[in-house]
Design a protein around this nucleic acid. Structure first.
Lengths: 238, 238
DNA sequence: GTGCTGGCAAGAGCGCTGCTCACTTTTGCG
DNA sequence: CGCAAAAGTGAGCAGCGCTCTTGCCAGCAC
């Protein structure tokens, strides 16, 4: 009865191994074929009976939900890792790094990005489970804004706006950011945030086809505009 | 052999009727159930054999393509119609009207919006066919920018940027807009455009859940920010 | 009016899917 | 070693997209 002691049985270890192999195969199938994933195809590729999959995932939607959860985590990892390498006082650079990390991760994991930020086809995507990694991701942006408030970057230009945020978000901001971030600045951050994901989705879904061939340059310029929209200077110190 | 004379045979008329009834049933099914559309279900609901559908649409993807095409047209209609009711010199109001028309249409046609701007699941979405209504939609934005250039609204503040647009887009701009629109302004318009669709998608796909309960206010403020980003004053004359 | 032809509908059928269930095999603990 | 729990199997059900054969029936030539 080793309850909370993380001593995995060999059974449990091989089970976890198989679980992640199933997920890897699923992502591989999603990524290669643009078709939707098929449990039977996964089982076929893994050399096991299709019914055996159900020992590990009770349904196809549960597999998808697991993939979505992993995806949010992986994206948050990529963003935090990239953003951490930027000097803390280079606020604009940090936002750029976040946006580029999101874009690069999305381009490298098209299918997963589609799962996260594409059409939420079925009825799953349990919000209770995804809230943790999503909070982790948005926390990076909030951290940038908080540091900017601390540094007095936005100071005089910002005036309170009429956007009412939920108590959840207010609590989240309070939890993440030590200083108080004015609601107007949060709103500007949201505009930038939605602009980033809008641009990434537009690029990936082909809505920029025929607009430009240099997606990198467009995105860079996009970020410049968004940076000055939230009130961040290109390079404050360097 | 009434070739180009639009004299529809009674056969052709009832056929067109049935085609649009199939499409309506498909959209209804997509809208009510959040499931993906099933030709058999459509046939079942219309009281006909499933194989009969194939007389009108050679495949399920062709039906989807037709729906996407109609969707782009309907969205372009809604936007142009709404934008036309705004005084021509109220450039910011026209952009607001476009954005609100997009958002309202998306909220009223969730499934169709998902088809247009969600995950492009299969391999279809023939770009050759969708280019016309898409051009019609983007032309509205270009028209606003062109009128702004004519009025000298953006004048001094705009400097050339390093975003290289495709020849296609340049030709499109030339075709639509009589004056020359600087590439930097086009880029700003694109940022606003992607910001609008990003916000609409975020709202519809539930990514603003727990952020705010007042989506209207957030979107309005979002538009204010985007308007001042492209350099449009709230109300230039009124 | 009769015969024919071409579009329309129906239904069986193929291979695929998610999923269930009865069953056998394997595994690891007591 | 014995045995229960877990893992894996294969048949089977209902649904799907799609095809093919069959039959129906309106409209035109004569």
């Amino acid at each position: 009865m080793c309850h909370n002691v993380p001593m995995p049985t060999l059974r449990e270890r091989v089970r976890a191994e198989l679980v992640s192999e199933i997920k890897a195969t699923a992502i591989d199938q999603l990524e290669s074929d643009n078709a939707d994933l098929s449990l039977r195809a996964i089982a076929r590729r893994m050399g096991m009976a299709s019914s055996a999959i159900y020992r590990y995932f009770p349904s196809r939607d549960d597999l998808l939900t697991a993939l979505i959860l992993d995806g949010y985590g992986a994206l948050a990892d990529a963003v935090t890792e990239t953003e951490a390498h930027v000097p803390r006082n280079d606020l604009a650079g940090r936002l750029r790094a976040c946006a580029n990390a999101i874009r690069n991760w999305a381009r490298d994991h098209r299918a997963e990005y589609a799962l996260l930020y594409g059409t939420p086809i079925p009825g799953f995507r349990a919000p209770q489970d995804t809230v943790v990694p999503v909070t982790r991701l948005s926390g990076v942006l909030i951290g940038i804004l908080a540091d900017g408030v601390n540094a007095g970057v936005f100071g005089a230009t910002e005036r309170p706006e009429d956007v009412r945020l939920t108590d959840d978000l207010s609590a989240l901001v309070e939890g993440f950011a030590h200083p108080e971030i004015p609601a107007g600045l949060i709103a500007r951050g949201l505009t930038a945030w939605m602009g980033i994901f809008g641009a990434v989705s537009f690029e990936l879904w082909g809505h920029l086809h025929g607009v430009t061939n240099d997606y990198d340059a467009l995105f860079e310029h996009h970020l410049t505009l968004l940076n000055q929209l939230v009130g961040l200077q290109p390079t404050p110190s360097a």
